[in-house]
Design a protein around this nucleic acid. Structure first.
Lengths: 212, 212
DNA sequence: ATATATATAGCGAAAAAGGGTGATTCTTAA
DNA sequence: TTAAGAATCACCCTTTTTCGCTATATATAT
């Protein structure tokens, strides 16, 4: 038996969800709320396994609510259901800790299936949503792919690494057991290879291109 | 009509896929290969919309193959099907440009449905896979969550931003229409709040904690 | 054998950054 | 109304960085 709480501002939809859940073997609707007032109290009084969460609601929106729920009830699975296809919503929902993200066009059976899946550790997603997630994921990894080969030598990489860690020339010299002037030499060469002319630029470029 | 090419080393499975595809209205198997020798040539000779790709194959594996396909035929959708649940495989498959990632346990109908979905721009994923993707995604964003509140003021944030971009004090001053000494003042305060004492340290911390 | 890349090192000058102190104005919160 | 924080600017002084030029030893590859 999966206990489900529903957050949905549309009265008709909310009551439909409640009905579907209670009519189907293995599901029980332990709460159905139009908004997130007394969110935590309601969840505390009516323990559940899965929350079916609408994003667009008066007052606190579904993403804020998800964040709150995951903070206080990390074991509750939150299944987002929405009409929004925007990257920002998807992105924020994931960050908030949502376990699944489905579009509202799903059939009644689709909802039950999705609820079952989140309960058993899966993350049901409308394929279109999944595509956006993959794209967002790839976009976040881009710097790795873009990493240009700057042909830094081993010693230069070490110097750059130490520079990124915030060391002064003096500290780098003693760290690598070389003279101060050698460090200066290396850094000159690094700047030339990276086409920069200050430490901050070099560090910025090094981190963003995952050189270190 | 969706034209599909199959890469699968298991003879029985491969022939089954071919049969299922050709027996079903709307699908056509235009190629079925046990490995990736002559991969590009085969795809060139037998144009297709979707590639059903096995990961585990003799010779070139499915992820390498996906990378190659997406480089030369960016419009072909690659649907990975595998028994592997490991993060590394999922991660690399996404990076390689796979459009979907399903487990081999899927039913025949599941395959056809998944193929239809990739063709129409979706990314079908087994819910368990989707969960891993979300987790990987969140793991990559961790620094944002860890971002400590350093209580930088708006102006300080601007200065830090410009510092990260590699600007000198002088440049920052002219950029913000304030005096050189004001910039110094702000930077002093920034360093104090960030507990650092050099530009390189500040930049490193700012980027790693996604302060800018 | 000779050219190239790497790591090392030094000197000197100019520019930039870092740290201390103090002060003014303006806004906002107690 | 007073206190606190934000943003601005100035002066002084030290340290660090940056840049130009030079130079040597070692290894590697042509």
């Amino acid at each position: 038996m999966i206990n489900v709480t529903v957050f949905e501002d549309n009265k008709h939809l909310r009551e439909t969800f409640e009905l579907i859940l209670n009519l189907n073997e293995g599901f029980s609707c332990v709460g159905a709320w139009p908004d997130c007032s007394d969110l935590l109290e309601n969840l505390l009084r009516n323990p559940c396994d899965v929350v079916l969460m609408d994003i667009e609601m008066p007052g606190m929106n579904g993403i804020e609510a998800t964040k709150l729920i995951k903070t206080h009830f990390p074991n509750i699975h939150v299944l987002i259901q929405t009409v929004f296809f925007e990257d920002d919503f998807i992105f924020n929902a994931i960050c908030a800790g949502a376990s699944g993200y489905i579009l509202k066009s799903t059939t009644p059976d689709g909802y039950l299936e999705a609820i079952t899946e989140v309960q058993s550790g899966g993350s049901p997603m409308t394929p279109g949503i999944a595509r956006r997630v993959l794209q967002l994921f790839k976009a976040n990894l881009q710097p790795i792919d873009n990493a240009i080969e700057y042909n830094l030598t081993n010693q230069e990489k070490k110097v750059l690494q130490l520079l990124v860690e915030g060391n002064s020339y003096k500290m780098i010299a003693s760290e690598l057991f070389v003279s101060f002037d050698t460090v200066k030499s290396h850094i000159r060469n690094i700047y030339a290879k990276l086409h920069v002319n200050s430490g901050t630029e070099a560090v910025s470029l090094a981190i963003k291109n995952k050189l270190v």
